[in-house]
């Protein structure tokens, strides 16, 4: 469990993709109200690190300390159902996360989706769809946002909207961990360059249960 001082603590973490270690020795802590931006070239392991922190895959070594049910993850895919309307998509996630419907209205408002609320998600543009994916974060009610390339296909105005949402979330005591290539307009956010943690090249770890599924 994380102590009260930080939402998320990562110590000496090593992660692997497809059995090949990509990052090792990653350590940082996310205090309430803080935003950390992960940087690094393509393939350095940003997505792998975020998926590991979100609990979708086990770490190779090291420790991830976060409160149970603190992390809301948003990956490359938005998890939007094309035949459901914008509101239905958000209401579904509100029910899954056990938060109220009033949060849905708040989320629609926060990402300027109110006018699109009744529209089927398949009619949305890529940027609108991404905004819907991000609005889902507001619906989860979870304190730590773990975001993988959240600004992809967003225009300048939407990026500003996103930055405002992050700032509000941080001001309310939340925290966010982002991987991004562009400047998301989060002036005060700390940055961590992952190229420094690249794992030493070594042979693939052979055997194991995963091999059958690789």
């Amino acid at each position: 469990m994380a102590d009260a001082a930080s939402h998320l603590e990562v110590a000496d973490l090593a992660v692997a993709r497809g059995g090949v270690p990509v990052l090792e020795g990653v350590s940082f802590a996310l205090a309430p109200g803080s935003v950390l931006v992960l940087k690094g070239p393509n393939g350095v392991g940003k997505t792998t690190l975020l998926r590991t922190i979100a609990g979708l895959q086990p770490p190779l070594a090291g420790r991830i300390a976060a409160a149970e049910g603190a992390i809301a993850y948003a990956g490359h895919a938005d998890g939007v159902k094309a035949t459901m309307s914008v509101t239905e998509n958000l209401v579904f996630w509100a029910e899954i996360f056990g938060t109220g419907r009033d949060r849905v209205a708040e989320a629609l408002d926060g990402f300027d989706l109110t006018l699109l609320a009744a529209r089927p998600a398949q009619m949305l543009s890529a940027g609108q769809r991404r905004r819907l994916g991000l609005a889902r974060l507001l619906v989860t009610g979870r304190p730590v946002w773990v975001l993988d390339e959240p600004t992809v296909s967003l225009d300048v105005a939407s990026v500003a909207m996103f930055a405002a949402a992050i700032r509000r979330h941080a001001a309310a005591g939340g925290a966010a961990l982002l991987a991004t290539h562009v400047d998301a307009g989060l002036g005060t956010a700390a940055e961590l360059d992952l190229s420094a943690f690249r794992a030493a090249p070594r042979a693939r770890i052979a055997g194991g249960f995963d091999e059958a599924f690789a």
Binding site: R51, A54, G55, L56, G69, I71, A72, Y73, A74, G75, H76, A77, D78, G79, V80, K81, A82, W93, I96, F97, G98, R136, T140
Partner: peptide, 14 residues
């Protein structure tokens, strides 16, 4: 899995 919902469901309280 294709639209990413499965990842999100896996991190949900269910």
């Amino acid at each position: 899995r294709e639209d990413g919902s499965l990842d999100l469901l896996a991190t949900a309280p269910v």
